[in-house]
Each structure stands twice: as structure tokens, then as C-alpha cells.
Amino acid sequence: MLTKRIIPCLDIKDGRTVKGVNFENIRDAGDPIELGALYAQQGADELVFLDITATNERRKTLSELVRQIARHVNIPFTVGGGISSVGDVSVLLQNGADKISVNTSAFKRPELVDELAREFGSQCVVLAIDTRFEDGDWYVYLNGGRVKTDVKCYDWAKEAVSRGAGEILLTSMNNDGTKQGFALDITGKLSQNLNVPVIASGGAGTMDHFMDVFENAQADAALAASIFHYKEIEIPELKTYLYQKGVNIRF
């Protein structure tokens, strides 16, 4: 049976991981390649690298980094952050990324999703959505959560899937950073109504939170950053816990 996936997310700035303290067993926790390889070895099912570099040099730095990750990491990985054209994606895939994620650029120009799916296949096009619950519904936010839109999260997700997005990476801004658990309602709504996998993100604090999002919201994958980086939860122990609880997990 297809397993649920555990996905650590690494924020990258100028070729270095932004969060990444507390790893005494590796030489350089700021090195995304070493950290990624460690997570892979520990049983992570996939990795997401989110580039938050703002400088003009970013493309060159990122493509070189992607090449190094692909060389050293033997599990699939997604690269996101500032991707806005077929050309951007082509470079990243050619350097060895398995998937790319688009967010604001796709919302502003939805045809981008069609273009990417047609050129590279839906399987490598991940649509990332930052969403916040307010006034009775979940709305799409852009630019890393700084800009509100009037579009409902579900509507945008549905449109993007019809345009060819192969996966949805859904981050609840209400839950992100709270460690109070994932947003089960919106995750469940997307997962049960869209025929593409949904990766839940934002709010992981305990191992039971992962259990909840898999069992009660039917998420296909769960993503977290700081709880893994700060070793509040370690991947082998998390996978053992989920396995014992009857969740389909890869060992």
C-alpha cells in the first residue's frame, strides 16, 4: 500500500539552511546538503527546500545547490521559492530536482500551472498555498503570508488542480508556529475532494498531531520544519510511533 509521507522542510538563504541548530552529530547544520542527507538517512520520505534568498545571485546559487543535493541525497526532493517561469523550472529540474513548488507567481498568473504541467508533467508541479481562516472561511494569502486575497483556498486549489497541479502543499497560517496541530478541516476538505495528494503543513508539535492529520484529515503527507531541526521530534521515533498506531509508514 502507498504510505503516508513525512517531509522535513529546509529554508535556504544564500545557499545555507536558515534554521538548523541542535545537530551535534553533523559537522555543519547550516549546510543543506549535509542536513538533507541526514534526514534521508533517518527515514524522511522526501525533502522540501524553500529558497528565501532575495538577491540577484539567487538563481545561480540555487541551481548549484540543487545539483549538489541531487548528487548526495537518495530520496526525492522539491525546490520552491521565487519560481515564476518555465525557464526557472527547467534549470532546477535539469540540475536534479524532482519537483518544484510554485505559490504567489501561480496565483498571479494561473496559466503558469498549465505551462509547467504541459512542459514537465503534473507529477513535478506542486502548488503551495498559504491560507488563513477568517470571516468563516479559508482564504489564500500571497508573498509569504503578507498579502491577503479574496479568493477561497478550496476554490484556488481546485482550479490549480484542473490546470495541472500534481500535488498541493497546504500551509495553515493560523496553525503555523503554534505547535497545536495541523488544520484538520481545510486539509481534509482538500484531500477528500481533490484527486491529487495533499501535503499538510503548519502546526506540528507532537507525534499525535501527525497521527491526526493522516487519520482524521486524510492528508497524504505531512511537512514540518523546526520540530525536526530542533530535534523535538526525531524522524525514526515518529515513524515507529505512527507504525505502531497502524498508519501506513515506510521503514
Partner: peptide, 17 residues
Amino acid sequence: QSPVDNLLKIPQIGWNN
């Protein structure tokens, strides 16, 4: 093909045995 009573996610993406 999706069974009538179940939404099948296509493509299959992930780890299977």
C-alpha cells in the same frame, strides 16, 4: 482508474511496497 466509490489520486506519488 478510480473505483466508483473511492477517489483515487492520480498519479500515484510516493512510497509503495
